[in-house]
Amino acid sequence: MSDEEQRLVAAAQHGDIESFNALVQLYEGRVYNLCYRMIGDADGAADTTQEAFFAAYRHLQRFRGGSFRSWVLRIATNACYDVLRARKRRPVVSLDAVGSSDDESSPLQIADSGETPDEFAQRRELARAIQHGLALLPEDQRAALILSDIEGYSYDEIAEVTDTNLGTVKSRISRGRLRLREILRQGELLPLRYRHEGDGAGAPTEGRDG
């Protein structure tokens, strides 16, 4: 944790909301991305993100050093679990809707200039398939996979965020990868094909390139 961050945390703990908001601005991107991948829709992700920051503010006195980022991400992960649990009891949005092409529920992706419309469409298709696949994973595997492979955190930090040990993190990540691979396969969207699409194998090739 940087000195500046430490100063902000200390000030926020003394009730300075501007300092807390500076921390929010530092981490809202990460928190929102985590929530979106966990929850699967933009509105739910935004609500959960807001809820997580409120919870962080309320419980700020309980933060006693260490990584503020991990602490906030842990609160966000728990907020996601809460939302998912509540939805399981009273389903509001079906998880299947996540995989469908309702563009209004997908947030804008950061545009990658120099991309053909075709490539863009493919990338979106893959993103949708992955999001759909993530929604089918057990929640702890989903969280571990998002944190490791999408957000790029270390095993150590994932263990801290998910409040578990390294062994469990490793096992959740490997199981999650295996499950997701199977799901994507069944969905006829092989990651392998995606990997080869740069060689012009974007169109269905009926497995002749293997």
């Binding site: 929010v24 601005q25 991107g29 993100t49 920051f53 409120f54 947030p107 804008l108 992706q109 950061i110």
Partner: peptide
Amino acid sequence: LRPPRSFTL
């Protein structure tokens, strides 16, 4: 993903 809004309190 770009957050749709700011989450500052």
